[in-house]
Amino acid sequence: MKINEMKVNEYLNLLKSDAPAPGGGSASALAGAQGIALFEMVCDLTIGKEKFAEYQEICAQAKADGEKLYKELTEAIDKDTEAFNLVSSAFKLPKATEEEKKVRSKAIAEGTLAATEVPFKSMELAYEGLLIVQKLVGKSNPNAVSDLGVAVLNLMSCIKGAWLNVKINLPGVKDEAAAKGFQEKGEKIILEAEALEKELYGRVLELL
């Protein structure tokens, strides 16, 4: 069964078990999906309400944009675990002969690259989510502004958590150009996301 199809208690029981996956990468993607789900809820609580007529277009667009992010982040919950399993399986390959060593090294490199790409993508998706929330604060149902604040926190948790998973895998990425790209782009996302989180959380507090 896929993780994103599990009941909440099933997922949590698996997460707290001694199984090495799902781990932090999957949990980060789930946090991101929760962040998207929360701002989509706020959109739904705004769309169709006459007293929020001026916010209809903004919320409808945010809802539509969020759907794609939500789909990709929920898929990332499983993709992260699958990538970890690739690496784990690669390390278990035989290495008695030179040919076996080559096959094993190639499999480890491919698995490690996948295990880096998945959380990095989660970072990008969650940052896109923050940019959408930026448009919604003060321009959606004010009764649900606290939910936008929680959305911000979940999205930031996804970004920072996914970054840790990128960082731990980077030393194993053999493609130096790819590794450098992950490092530089990841640092940029972190800096911009932290500034945006501070701004948005502050604005939410002011509106409460």
Rank of each mutant, 00 (worst) to 15 (best):
E72P: 09
I58P: 06
Q134L: 12
T81L: 13
E100R: 07
L196P: 04
L45S: 09
L200E: 00
Q183P: 15
M1V: 14
A151M: 03
D80A: 12
K79G: 15
L207F: 12
K92N: 09
F182S: 05
P171D: 11
N169T: 07
Y11S: 11
A107N: 10
L38W: 02
A109V: 11
K139W: 05
L136I: 04
E117K: 03
E67C: 12
A126Q: 02
I168P: 15
A76F: 00
L113H: 02
P22M: 01
K160N: 12
Q134M: 11
E187W: 04
L12N: 09
E124V: 05
I159K: 02
K106Q: 15
L170G: 13
G25T: 01
L170W: 09
S122M: 06
K139H: 11
Q34D: 12
L38Q: 02
A64F: 12
L38V: 02
Y11W: 06
L131N: 14
T97G: 10
T97L: 09
T81K: 13
D147H: 01
E54D: 13
T116Y: 01
D18F: 12
K49V: 06
F52G: 10
A162C: 03
L125Y: 00
K167V: 14
L69C: 04
E124S: 13
N154W: 01
M156D: 08
A21K: 04
K101R: 10
L191A: 15
I58R: 04
A126W: 00
A179M: 07
P20A: 04
E117N: 06
F52C: 08
A151Y: 00
